[in-house]
């Protein structure tokens, strides 16, 4: 082999190898880089929207809550605001907000236990029958597929009295008709001059009715996955039905129970549209507007004119929901049997 030939060969190898390595490098660069970015590319529409409508609001709402007396109008006019917790103290001292807080908590405390217990009872009964099972399941799920404003209007009509010329109203409403048939006196539930406790009863009935389907569905799903052996064992031991219920069914269902109770509380603290359904936007009987206002109602009314206050109220709501959820999780961790 001559020197020149060897050189050519070396040169060829060198160039070819470099070329090849270079190519591989390029391919790697393009593909690997693209692979790295492909995920972000697919996520981009979601991320852009989330940045604008979810992430930015978190920061901005916190900012507005900490600027005393912040309103968009004043901000547009170039006014500056002092930094501080004035919005929070003002909201917590404002009687209207206290009413909202009281109503919300009261409705939560009333409706969550009642609806959970009723749903558990119905689910257990449904689980132990065969005939009509499918049909009844559908019936109990039906309230879920409704418009809570629309059906709220039906409930309002059922409790509503139509005042006539005489002392006694022309029509006292179907619920009062049933009460009178059972020997009670009729009650002014939702009309002008109705009392607070009566309004709360109406709201409780409606919210429980509305909350049942979801809870029944979840609990029934849980019951169907419970191992039948436990019940066989209880039967062999001659355990009573009540004992079986409290000692086997409830513990085995506890994860689902914890779930429906937590979601129930979260939903309860955000109660709003069911009250609009029954009482309308005035959030109370005629002549007593906002008697049944809730936290969410308070926030919505402050949007567009009192952003600082609204933000502070929303953050308070967040902390309440957060705290209640944490307490629930803590309790359920102690009591749940997996």
């Amino acid at each position: 082999m001559t020197e020149s030939k060897q050189n050519v060969f070396q040169w060829f190898v060198e160039v070819f190898c470099k070329q090849w390595v270079w190519q591989k490098f390029c391919v790697n660069l393009v593909y690997k880089k693209f692979d790295k970015w492909k995920g972000w590319l697919y996520l981009s529409p979601a991320l852009v929207l989330l940045a604008i409508f979810t992430i930015w609001p978190i920061f901005n709402t916190i900012r507005m809550s900490l600027l005393e007396g912040y309103t968009t109008m004043k901000a547009v006019n170039g006014q500056s605001f002092a930094f501080g917790i004035g919005n929070f103290t003002r909201v917590l001292k404002y009687p209207g907000f206290i009413t909202c807080l009281k109503n919300t908590v009261l409705l939560c405390v009333l409706t969550v236990p009642i609806s959970t217990f009723l749903a558990l009872l119905i689910a257990v009964c449904l689980n132990s029958i065969k005939f009509l099972n499918r049909f009844l399941q559908t019936v109990f799920f039906l309230p879920y597929v409704t418009n809570s404003i629309a059906i709220g209007m039906v409930f309002a009509a059922m409790f509503n009295m139509i005042i006539g010329g005489s002392v006694r109203p022309d029509s006292v409403g179907i619920v009062n008709n049933v009460l009178e048939a059972l020997g009670f006196n009729y009650v002014n539930w939702v009309n002008a001059g109705s009392e607070y406790w009566a309004n709360i009863v109406v709201m409780t009935v409606y919210i429980v009715w509305n909350a049942l389907p979801f809870k029944i569905l979840i609990l029934l799903g849980g019951l169907q996955s419970v191992n039948k052996q436990y019940y066989e064992a209880a039967k062999v031991d001659g355990t009573s039905r009540a004992r079986t219920f409290w000692r086997i069914t409830v513990p085995l269902l506890s994860p689902m129970l914890a779930y429906v109770i937590i979601t129930g509380f979260i939903g309860g603290f955000k109660e709003y549209s069911s009250i609009v359904g029954i009482f309308g936007e005035s959030m109370g009987p005629v002549g007593d507007a906002y008697a049944l206002d809730t936290m969410v109602g308070f926030i919505y009314r402050a949007i567009g004119n009192q952003e600082g206050t609204a933000s502070a109220a929303a953050i308070i709501l967040f902390f309440i929901i957060f705290a209640v959820t944490m307490v629930n999780l803590y309790v359920s961790k102690k009591k749940t049997h997996y």
């Binding site: 409508f53 979810t54 930015w56 609001p57 978190i58 901005n60 709402t61 507005m64 603290f269 955000k270 969410v296 926030i299 919505y300 949007i303 952003e307 609204a310 933000s311 929303a314 953050i315 709501l317 967040f318 929901i321």
Partner: peptide
Amino acid sequence: PGELFTIT
């Protein structure tokens, strides 16, 4: 809660 986003 969604209300927190709604304000902004």
